[in-house]
């Protein structure tokens, strides 16, 4: 099976509803092995639902899923054995200590659990081993969640808002050190985060989910290459509308117009911009967060 060899994750036509409300519809997602895939979307876009279906924690209502050659809907145990998962909201037995919850999880991952690496992570996260989890702060609970997901060195790591409760120092250390170390062994990571700029330097590919469908899905270089911000300065008031190939959004303020352009073609788009009659044209790259905001806003009807 091709998907099993090339892709850590492959979904086709994936859909899921809650009650009568479809939160995900026709999702085709491919995550190559060995990459860090940034899975972005607004609140309620369907990221967590997708991740839970990838883990076999939810059953899809339509479509197929392949995770490391397994169908999570049929063999969730095999998937969970090979995949580490950090949920947006961590759940534990709060009356257990860190040491105890590690022992409990290790019982069910007897073959894969790496005691030395688990100890390394406990030290790295500065977690008090003999303290009950119920006394932990939100950030410490997030660390325990990361610890349990990474301690058996899974082939695939699915991280749903993993750094939400972490302080900036630990967050940076996690992203720059722990995840980087983890990736040295050619493992795959699917990560969703609202702190987009923090993961921007880490991800190879990005998928932007919006209203249950995939808006964009490409390498980060291609995304930056294809989507640009053009700032046009006019002699008089800027026109409120303009026509140009690939235009996503146009915002006019006084004599300045800001245009978000998709499918940017270096050989044609600058000429087309020049033809709009502006006194000055500046073309810039977006950072990942602004790119995300532009694309999702345009998808909601922000284009003019």
């Amino acid at each position: 099976m091709t998907a099993a060899t090339e892709y850590a994750i492959a979904t086709h036509g994936l859909g899921r509803r809650f009650g009568r409300n479809w939160v995900l519809k026709g999702l085709d997602l491919e995550v190559p092995k060995g990459c860090v895939f940034g899975f972005l979307g607004l609140n309620g876009a369907g990221k967590s639902t997708t991740m839970r279906m990838l883990m076999g924690l939810l059953t899809p209502h339509e479509g197929t899923i392949d995770v490391l050659g397994h169908d999570p809907a049929r063999d969730a145990v095999a998937v969970k054995r090979r995949v580490g998962y950090v949920a947006e909201k961590p759940w534990f037995y709060e009356w257990m200590t860190v040491r105890e919850v590690m022992a409990f999880a290790a019982h069910y991952r007897a073959r894969e659990w790496d005691d030395a690496f688990a100890e390394y992570l406990v030290n790295a996260f500065k977690l008090p081993r003999d303290q009950k989890i119920k006394t932990f702060s939100k950030g410490q609970a997030a660390k325990v969640s990361l610890l349990l997901a990474m301690a058996f060195k899974p082939e695939l790591l699915i991280l749903d808002e993993p750094t939400g409760g972490l302080d900036p120092v630990v967050r940076r250390e996690f992203v720059e050190k722990l995840l980087a170390e983890y990736m040295e062994e050619e493992r795959t990571v699917l990560i969703s985060s609202h702190l987009i700029n923090e993961i921007a330097g880490l991800v190879d590919r990005v998928g932007i989910l919006h209203n249950g469908t995939l808006l964009k899905h490409d390498t980060i270089e291609n995304l930056f290459r294809q989507t640009k911000l053009a700032t046009l300065t006019f002699e008089d008031d800027a026109p409120s509308t303009c026509t140009i190939p690939g235009l996503l959004r146009c915002r006019a303020e006084g004599r300045t117009a800001r245009l978000t352009i998709d499918n940017f073609d270096p050989s044609e788009t600058p000429a087309a911009l020049g033809a709009l009659g502006a006194r000055n044209v500046v073309i810039e790259d977006f950072n990942l967060e602004n790119l995300f905001i532009e694309l999702t806003t345009a998808a909601d009807g922000g284009a003019s």
Binding site: M55, L57, V77, A78, K80, R81, Y85, A87, W91, F92, Y93, A105, Y108, R109
Partner: peptide, 13 residues
């Protein structure tokens, strides 16, 4: 308590 969710994430049948 929702700890069933924690159990559900373990590789156990």
């Amino acid at each position: 308590d929702g700890t069933r969710i924690f159990l559900g994430r373990l590789p156990a049948g």
